[in-house]
Design a protein around this nucleic acid. Structure first.
Lengths: 197, 197
DNA sequence: TACTAATATGCAAACATTTGCATAGGAAGT
DNA sequence: ACTTCCTATGCAAATGTTTGCATATTAGTA
């Protein structure tokens, strides 16, 4: 039920049309909250009915008219109230893990191919994140300070992709070798953590 | 659309009632695929109508009657066909990241408390996973081999919780100190990876 | 004695998401 | 000339998920 709040967050940062918001869900915030354009339009209608956002129609000569939405003060109040409430645990639904769980029923060659594809996809994503991070660090101190919360979410994305890739590579290798992991994951992670600081 | 397949996977491993399946979604597979009992019952009805599962009513003297479901050969065919198809990327929806993204609107003290709570929850989860891993490694080689795919999903869970906890601790610390990260995440991870092998 | 938890199933309504379609003009490539 | 992409919005239907309620028995606890 937080599509509503994600939209309010975006509109709080900057007003925009449904189309604009849909674009923004395709990048940046889209890395941790996804929404399609239909969802956005439907939600904007509801938010508008609840007076949490309002819009003005901008007539454009060379483009279709657009409705530029902005958050209302009631919307900002709702948003702040939401931020106060503790969130309930997200439910995790990972199709890939279900597949791995049932891998004994699958064709090993095809599974290997699929893992390779996933690894490639996530490496691509990681590369994009790395570039975004490079950009962040090349900005001046004031910009970095202003952008720090979005940057922290980027760090989460980088960690996530990195971990996920490591795991998929491990699984791919173990399946190819028909081997079992030698050491407990907890030991490996604890050892790595000791070296780091 | 994989609740269907998750149920088929579970029934392929072992027949059971709706209630049994709901319990199994509460642990084990529940760490990467969640389903409530209502979802399970509704889906079993559909699967039954499609002849992908079948059931027998087991009358019990001291407990309510139960319908024990098992996968049919059509169900197994469907499941195998599903395993062959590449999966589409999961959409990520993380309420916590939306909150962090919008943290400038939140009360710092409350946000800190919420982060602390989340860290505690995930540390608890990690502890449970560590115990499950300990159990896996204390089993004999034959059992370990048989359980290897579920164990690989457990490794994913351990990595996931570990990474998530690290990130939340980092954010909590940075917010408390009103500081910015010093080094790019990519550098830190690359450095850690070089030491490890 | 009353409440609470566990076993066991399910309906109905509300809510959210996905898919397919529909419109319409301008820009840019083939 | 034709197709495709981008901007811009939206309806309708199907599908999927969540919430609230409802039932029934047994066992254990306060």
């Amino acid at each position: 039920m937080s599509l509503k709040h994600a939209i309010l967050v975006l509109l709080d940062k900057k007003p925009g049309s449904g189309y604009d918001l849909a674009q923004r869900f395709g990048g940046g915030i889209g890395n941790f909250w996804n929404a399609t354009h239909q969802q956005v339009y439907q939600e904007l209608k509801k938010l508008s009915a609840d007076k949490l956002v309002e819009f003005e129609v901008h007539t454009q000569a060379e483009r279709p008219d657009k409705k530029v939405y902005q958050i209302t003060s009631a919307g900002r109040t709702t948003l702040k109230a939401w931020l106060k409430q503790p969130i309930k645990l997200a439910r995790i639904n990972s199709t890939l893990l279900v597949k791995i769980y049932a891998a004994h029923l699958a064709d090993p060659v095809e599974l290997d191919k699929e893992l390779a594809q996933h690894i490639a996809n996530h490496e691509q994503k990681l590369l994009e994140f790395a570039e975004m991070e490079r950009l962040y660090f090349s900005a001046d101190a004031a910009t970095r300070r202003k952008q720090r919360m979005p940057y922290l979410t980027l760090r989460s994305g980088i960690r996530y992709e990195w971990t996920w890739i490591e795991w998929m590579k491990e699984v791919k290798q173990l399946l190819a070798d028909d081997a079992l992991p030698e050491k407990p994951m907890m030991e490996l992670l604890a050892a790595a953590a000791k070296i780091k600081p």
